[in-house]
Design a protein around this nucleic acid. Structure first.
Length: 799
DNA sequence: TAATCGATCTTTTTT
DNA sequence: AGATCGATTA
C-alpha cells in the first residue's frame, strides 16, 4: 500500500537485532550460532522469504537442508506462511536430497534410478550373505563400522579406514559389501551422502549444473553434520553460492553416529571470510533454568562460547531431588505431575496445567518402564516417544521386502527374507541355488538372468523337486500378479529401467508434495481399521497392492494362525501399512516413492495402542527431546553411571554434558532434576552416586529436596574444572573430607526455608559447632552444624 | 521345522 | 530382569 522501499516489512519487524542481521546477511559465508530456543527456525524461514521477496531470488535456486523430516516439514510450512513462493524452494533432509540427486545422476556411479534404500538391518542381512560364519552380533558391529566409515567418507581403500575399525578383515569385508550392494543395485543410508559427493567430485559438468541451480544453501542443525555431509556441502557450494549454516555447538549430541562438532567449530576456517552471528536471546526458558544449563555446559572445553539470556524473568528455582531409589523416583514424578494437573479443591487460583505440559526425560529407554508402571497404576495418561519402531517390526519388514522385490528383483536380501515365508518348502539349499544361478548361469544355459532372481527362479523351476517347485511357483505367481497390478497403470515398467524416473518431482515440486505425502501415515485413519481382524482392506492406490501381497503371500494368515496373542497387533500394523499406501498411485513410480518415504522417514508412530494422546505426559530420552519444549521438565536418573555412563571421558563426556544441556534447555517454566541413591540395573540393585554434572551445577541456582549424599552436600570446593575427566565423585571425596569440615565466618549458604544467608560466626559447643547465620531477609538463625541436613546448601565459598 | 534351553549382554540412534 | 541369540533337541 504505502511507499514500498525503505519501510521494514512486518514479517521482519518481529525479529530482534541479531536475528534481523542474520536474515539480511549476504555474500560471505555465514555461521549462525543459534542457542537453544533462540528462534533459529524463524530466522531460516524468514531468510528464505526475504531472499525471495527482497532479493528477488528464484525460489527454486534455494536449497535448505535439515536432519529430520519433521524439521524439513516445519520449515516448509512456516516459510510458506510468510511467502507462498517458498513452496518452490527445495527443503529436504540431507538424505532425501541425496536420494533426489542419485535418482537423477546415479547412473554416473553405475546406479539404477529405481534403487531401494537399505536400512541397518538390511546391511546386516547383506553382510551375513557374505560372511556366513560370523555371528550376528559381530555383523552388527561391522555394519556399524561400515556406516561410520561412510560417515567419514572413507572407502574400502582409504588409508584412514583403520581409524574406524582396525580389524585386519574389516577392509576386505567392507570391500565385498560394497561390491555386493552394487551388484544388487541398492544403496544404504551412507551411500545417499557419499555417492553424490563422489559423483560431484568426478564430474565437472554435474557439479557446475548443480551449483548453477542452487545459488543459496542453508543448513540447519549444522553441529550434527558428519564429514561426508561436510564434503557434500563443499561440493554444492560453488564460487557464486551463498552458504549459511545454523547450529549450536553445545547441542551436538550425535557424535557416536559420526557427527563432527569440528564441522561447526572450524566453519570459519573451512569457509574463508565467514561471518559469525550469535543468537543468544532465549525465548523459551526462565533465567534460572538457563543459568543452570549454562553452568554445566560451560565445563566443556571445545565450544565456541555463547551466553544465553532470557527476558522471561528469574522464574522458579530448578529443584534437585535426592531420592532413595527408582520407585521413589517414579512416585515423586507422579506426585508432582498429579498435584499440578489435579489440584486439590481449594487451591484453584493457579493457571491450569495439562498433562502434556510435562515431560520426563531419561538417558536410556529402559528407564521408561518404571514410570509407565506407576502411571498406569495411577491412571496418568502418558505417551512414550521413540520406542517400538513401527517399521522395524517383523511383519512390516516382511511386507516391505515383498514390495522391494517388486521394484528390484535383484534384491537378494528381500528375496531371501520372503521367498520362504511363510514356509513354502524352500530350504536354504534351494534358495542358495537360485541366488547363485542368478549371477553365474550354469554352463551351457542359454539365458543369463544377469542377477535377476526372479528370472533365475523361473529358469530353475523345472529342475526342482516337486515340493520346492510348487512352493516357488506360488511365490512367482504372486510376484507376477502383483507386478501386473502395477504395470497396468502404465507407469514405467520394471524392465524398462533405462530412463530415470522422477517420482517425487511432479509439477508441484518436491517441497510441496512432501507434506502431503506425509499426511497419509499421520492422520486418523484409525476408524477404518476393523477391530476384529477378519480381512485386511485396501482399495485405493497402492494399498490394493499391499493388501494383495500380504494376503496372497499367506503372510497375514501365517501370523493369524501362528501367534495367538501377537496376531492382532501384527495384523493391525499390516493394515496400518496398507493405509499409509493409500495416497500413492499404484504405479512403479508411486511404489518407489512410497518405499523411499518409508525408508527416509520412519517417524510413523505406533498407532496401534495409542489413545488420543494430545494430552498426555511425555516420556522421552534426552536425545529425542532435541527441538522440543515443555513447560515442566523432569530430568531423571542424574546419577554417575547412568548419566553420564561411567565409561565416558574426554570428548565423550563432553557430549554427555551437551546432552544434559539439551535436556535442561527444553524446560520453559519448571525444571526438576532427580538423582537416586540406589537403582536396579541388569537385575541387581546397586548404589549410585550423584552425577558429576550435579557437581558442576551452580548450587545457588538450585532448591534441594531430600537427603543429599554427604560428599555432595559438602562439595563446596569441588574441583571439576574443564573436561579433564580426572574429577569424579570418588576422586573428589578425599578433598572434600578435608575441606567440608566446618563453616567459617563469611561462608555463603542457601536454606530451603529462609533463602540466602551468610555465616556471622561459628561457636563451639558441647553438641558441636553452632553456626549463626544472617539471612537476606534480615532474620538471624542458629543451627547445629551437624544438623545442617539437606536444608542447607553451601554456595561456593571460593567466590 | 519348530521349539526350547542356556549363555550373553545390556546407550543414545535425526537418516 | 529381560531380551536376544545360537545351539541343541524333538
Amino acid at each position: 500500500m504505502d511507499g514500498k522501499t525503505t519501510e521494514t516489512a512486518p514479517y521482519l519487524e518481529a525479529l530482534n537485532d541479531e536475528q534481523r542481521e542474520a536474515v539480511y546477511h549476504w555474500e560471505r559465508p555465514l555461521l549462525i550460532l543459534a542457542g537453544a530456543g533462540s528462534g533459529k527456525t524463524r530466522v531460516i524461514t524468514t531468510k528464505i522469504a526475504y531472499l525471495i521477496r527482497e532479493r528477488g531470488l528464484d525460489p527454486r535456486s534455494i536449497l535448505a537442508v535439515t536432519f529430520t523430516n519433521k524439521a524439513a516439514r516445519e520449515m516448509a510450512d512456516r516459510a510458506r506462511l510468510i511467502d507462498e513462493r517458498a513452496a518452490e524452494a527445495m527443503l529436504r533432509t540431507f538424505h532425501s536430497f541425496g536420494a533426489w540427486f542419485l535418482r537423477r545422476n546415479g547412473a554416473l556411479a553405475g546406479l539404477d534410478s529405481s534403487f531401494v534404500i537399505y536400512d541397518d538391518d538390511d546391511m546386516v542381512s547383506l553382510l551375513s550373505t557374505i560372511e556366513e560364519d560370523i555371528s550376528k552380533a559381530e555383523l552388527r558391529l561391522i555394519a556399524g563400522s561400515i556406516s561410520r566409515a561412510k560417515d567419514y567418507f572413507f572407502s574400502p581403500d582409504s588409508p584412514e579406514l583403520d581409524r574406524i575399525n582396525y580389524h585386519p578383515r574389516f577392509r576386505k569385508i567392507y570391500a565385498r559389501y560394497e561390491e555386493k550392494l552394487r551388484h544388487i543395485g541398492n544403496v544404504d543410508f551412507g551411500d545417499l551422502i557419499k555417492k553424490p559427493v563422489e559423483i560431484l567430485q568426478e564430474n565437472r559438468a554435474v557439479s557446475s549444473r548443480i551449483q548453477d541451480r542452487f545459488r543459496v544453501i542453508l543448513v540447519d542443525e549444522y553441529q550434527d553434520a558428519n564429514i561426508a555431509q561436510f564434503e557434500l556441502l563443499k561440493e554444492l557450494v560453488g564460487p557464486a553460492t551463498y552458504v549459511c549454516v545454523v547450529g549450536d555447538d553445545d547441542q551436538s549430541i550425535y557424535r557416536f553416529r559420526g557427527a563432527e562438532v569440528r564441522n561447526i567449530l572450524e566453519f570459519p576456517d573451512r569457509f574463508r571470510g565467514a561471518d559469525i552471528i550469535r543468537l543468544q536471546q532465549n525465548y523459551r526458558s526462565t533465567t534460572n533454568i538457563l543459568h543452570l544449563a549454562s553452568s554445566v555446559v560451560s565445563h566443556n572445553e571445545s565450544r565456541l562460547g555463547k551466553e544465553l539470556f532470557s527476558r522471561r524473568g528469574e522464574g522458579k528455582k530448578p529443584v534437585l531431588a535426592f531420592l532413595p531409589n527408582q520407585d521413589e523416583e517414579a512416585a515423586f514424578c507422579a506426585d508432582l505431575i498429579e498435584k499440578s494437573v489435579r489440584p486439590e479443591a481449594g487451591s484453584r487460583n493457579k493457571a491450569p496445567v495439562r498433562w502434556s505440559d510435562w515431560a520426563i526425560l531419561y538417558r536410556t529407554n529402559a528407564q521408561s518402564l518404571g514410570f509407565e508402571t506407576e502411571f498406569l497404576r495411577r491412571c496418568i495418561p502418558y505417551r512414550v516417544v521413540g520406542t517400538l519402531k513401527f517399521y522395524e517390526r517383523e511383519e512390516i519388514k516382511d511386507a516391505l521386502a515383498l514390495l522391494s522385490f517388486l521394484v528390484n528383483s535383484r534384491d537378494e536380501i528381500a528375496f531371501r527374507r520372503v521367498v520362504n515365508k511363510p514356509a513354502r518348502g524352500l530350504g536354504k539349499a534351494t534358495v542358495d541355488r537360485i541366488v547363485e544361478a542368478a549371477s553365474d548361469p550354469a554352463a551351457g544355459s542359454a539365458a543369463d538372468p544377469a542377477g535377476d532372481l526372479e528370472a533365475a527362479a523361473r529358469l530353475l523351476l523345472p529342475e526342482l523337486p516337486p515340493k520346492a517347485r510348487s512352493g516357488l511357483h506360488s511365490f512367482l505367481s504372486l510376484i507376477g500378479e502383483s507386478r501386473a497390478l502395477i504395470a497396468e497403470s502404465g507407469a514405467v515398467s520394471p524392465a524398462a529401467q533405462t530412463q530415470p524416473q522422477r517420482p517425487a518431482e511432479s509439477p508441484s515440486g518436491p517441497a510441496r508434495s512432501r507434506p502431503k505425502d506425509r499426511q497419509a501415515p499421520r492422520t486418523g485413519r484409525r476408524a477404518e481399521v476393523p477391530e476384529s481382524q477378519e480381512e485386511l482392506r485396501g482399495s485405493e492406490g497402492l494399498s490394493t497392492l499391499v493388501v494383495k501381497l500380504v494376503t496372497d503371500s499367506g503372510l497375514a494368515n501365517h501370523y493369524r494362525i501362528h501367534e495367538e496373542p501377537g496376531a492382532v497387533p501384527r495384523l493391525n500394523n499390516l493394515q496400518e501399512l496398507a493405509n499409509a499406501a493409500v495416497e500413492y498411485p499404484a504405479t512403479m513410480a508411486g511404489l518407489l516413492q512410497f518405499l523411499e518415504n518409508i525408508e527416509l522417514d520412519r517417524s510413523l508412530e505406533d498407532n496401534t495402542n495409542k489413545q488420543a494422546d494430545s494430552t498426555a505426559v511425555t516420556l522421552i530420552t534426552f536425545h529425542n527431546t532435541k527441538g522440543l519444549e515443555f513447560r515442566h521438565v523432569i530430568m531423571t536418573g542424574i546419577e554417575q553411571g547412568i548419566f553420564p555412563r561411567d565409561d565416558k571421558k574426554g570428548e565423550d563426556l563432553e557430549e554427555e554434558r551437551r546432552l544434559f544441556y539439551v535436556g535442561a534447555t527444553r524446560a520453559m517454566d519448571e525444571l526438576y532434576l532427580v538423582s537416586c541413591a540406589q537403582r536396579r540395573m541388569y537385575g541387581h540393585t546397586q548404589s549410585t552416586e550423584p552425577s558429576i554434572f550435579l557437581w558442576e551445577v551452580d548450587s545457588a541456582a538450585l532448591r534441594i529436596i531430600g537427603a543429599a549424599p554427604y560428599e555432595w552436600r559438602n562439595r563446596s570446593a569441588h574441583t571439576t574444572r574443564g573436561a579433564d575427566g580426572a574429577s569424579n565423585g570418588g576422586a573428589n571425596s578425599g578433598v572434600q573430607e578435608e575441606d567440608s569440615r566446618d563453616w567459617r565466618r563469611g561462608d555463603r549458604l542457601y536454606h530451603d526455608d529462609y533463602g540466602y544467608g551468610g555465616v556471622l560466626r561459628v561457636r563451639e559447643t558441647e553438641d558441636g559447632p553452632v553456626v549463626e547465620v544472617l539471612f537476606e531477609s534480615g532474620k538471624e538463625m542458629r543451627f547445629l552444624s551437624r544438623y545442617q541436613g539437606s536444608a542447607f546448601t553451601r554456595i561456593g565459598n571460593d567466590i
